[in-house]
């Protein structure tokens, strides 16, 4: 690496160790339990808990969320943005309706909340159609104003009614699955949408939104939809945001190095015994970290060989570690040397 004063990093510098220290020390200063309440009623973890989440490569974050910017021509129109946000929100039947089952009469009663209907701009006919489509010919559906009555045959088993009820509760009415909330936030003159819950694959298909700037904090989902390189960029961005929010100045190169290491195998590996440290090349390096016996026994069963090329291995056996000047090796050019000596 070259800077104004020459080379900052020279061959043999233990950059991994320096990166770990540079990230670990600010980590001690971070808030143990901090959240931000950006427009949502939910608390999204930031600070140390969030760093751990990212670095451990959790399957889903504790509170997934997305920032969605709408196309330039809609951005200043609050009503339009609100309408787009409403269309995002995942609405299931039990969210807009009271539901009751009557086992004696073999009937499920659904009373849809009229104010919710109005807010979401829904029509009872649509809801009726959805229910009919879901039930098929299992039961008869009667609808009067905002009430729906589902009549089963007298011989229907009670357990089947309960099962149908549970499935009906989660009947998809509108919106994108897994997006629980969508609210709009004003930024300068423009509005953007922030959602609780995340579903990148579906959101990028929407025509009204600016696809290029959609952001989600679910890194695994980025990996699934955009690929490993995008996931690596997402890790860098996420860690940088956290560090900045905590007021900890950290050189971005350490974050780049960490995320490159996490993504080098083609999938996102956690930093720890199930990820990076557990997949090191050297047996002794793995054994020195955690689960010593497991690694030693497995290596001996497979007759693995340790080339003693890493730092940890050489510390263990008491040789010079291959860092800095220790990385230089002397090679003896026998032929030429002896000839010169003869002369």
């Amino acid at each position: 690496m070259r800077g104004k004063k020459g080379k900052f990093i020279v061959p043999g510098d233990p950059v991994g160790t320096i990166a770990a220290q540079s990230l670990g020390e600010p980590g001690t200063q971070m808030n143990m339990r901090s959240f931000h309440y950006a427009g949502t009623a939910e608390a999204v973890p930031t600070g140390l808990p969030r760093v751990i989440e990212v670095v451990d490569a959790r399957r889903t974050p504790k509170k997934p969320m997305m920032d969605i910017h709408v196309k330039e021509r809609y951005a200043k129109d609050e009503k339009k943005v609100r309408k787009i946000a409403n269309n995002l929100e995942h609405v299931t039947l039990h969210k807009i309706a009271g539901m009751m089952e009557d086992f004696d009469k073999k009937v499920i009663l659904i009373r849809v909340n009229p104010s919710e209907l109005k807010r979401l701009g829904l029509d009872m006919r649509l809801i009726r159609a959805k229910i009919v489509e879901f039930l098929g010919n299992k039961a008869k559906v009667e609808q009067r104003e905002n009430k729906v009555r589902i009549k089963f045959s007298k011989k229907e088993k009670i357990i089947n009614i309960r099962k149908t009820m549970n499935k009906l509760k989660l009947l998809h009415i509108k919106g994108i699955p897994r997006i629980e909330k969508a609210m709009i936030i004003k930024e300068g003159e423009k509005y953007f949408i922030r959602t609780g819950g995340s579903n990148l694959a579906e959101v990028i298909k929407l025509p009204e939104i600016e696809v290029g700037t959609v952001w989600t904090n679910d890194i695994m989902e980025v990996n699934k939809v955009f690929g490993i390189e995008a996931a690596r960029n997402a890790i860098v961005k996420e860690l940088k945001i956290i560090m900045d929010s905590q007021g900890l100045p950290i050189d971005i190169r350490w974050l780049l190095l960490l995320s490159d290491a996490m993504c080098k195998s083609g999938t996102i590996q956690a930093v720890g015994r199930h990820g990076l440290s557990g997949h090191k090349a050297g047996i002794l390096a793995r054994a020195a970290f955690e689960e010593t016996m497991k690694h030693l026994v497995n290596a001996s069963i497979k007759a693995e060989e340790d080339k003693l090329s890493g730092v940890t291995e050489n510390v263990i056996i008491g040789q010079i570690v291959p860092i800095g000047t220790g990385i230089v090796k002397l090679k003896f050019a026998s032929g030429r040397g002896t000839q010169k000596a003869k002369k």
Partner: peptide, 20 residues
Amino acid sequence: LAKKKDEKTFSLEHFLIPVH
């Protein structure tokens, strides 16, 4: 460009995705 099921195309240039 990504093609949707209904054959409408839309561009997918995302700030996270570098050129491969």
